[in-house]
């Protein structure tokens, strides 16, 4: 059950990127989950809205792409 912790750290990275871009809020988050990463995409999707609530990513759409390998990558953000 570490997907929630992953969400938190992804959101922290996303907020930094948001600040650097000088934008206000995050409308969408695009993640790529590696098949060997040990991360369950469903658990990530379930945890995300709870972790994002009250942050600048509140209400953001989460898009998960599956890929080979062991990594979990925050590919891009849609910001406003």
């Amino acid at each position: 059950m570490h997907e929630a912790k992953l969400c938190l750290s992804l959101l922290a990275t996303a907020e930094r990127a948001l600040a650097e871009a000088g934008a206000e809020r995050i409308a969408a988050v695009h993640l790529a989950v590696g098949a060997l990463s040990g991360v369950a995409p469903e658990a990530l999707a379930a945890a995300f809205p709870i972790c994002a609530a009250g942050t600048r990513a509140d209400g953001a759409v989460l898009r998960i792409e599956r890929m080979p390998g062991r990594d979990l990558v925050l590919r891009e953000l849609e910001v406003v």
């Binding site: 570490h2 912790k5 992953l6 750290s9 992804l10 990275t13 996303a14 990127a17 948001l18 871009a21 934008a23 206000e24 409308a27 990463s37 040990g38 991360v39 062991r70 990594d71 979990l72 990558v73 925050l74 590919r75 891009e76 953000l77 849609e78 910001v79 406003v80």
Partner: peptide, 19 residues
Amino acid sequence: RSARRIIRVGAIARVEGEG
């Protein structure tokens, strides 16, 4: 309406390390 834009991040999240 404020324009939406895409920011490429490409950051790899560490899966291990709960502490």
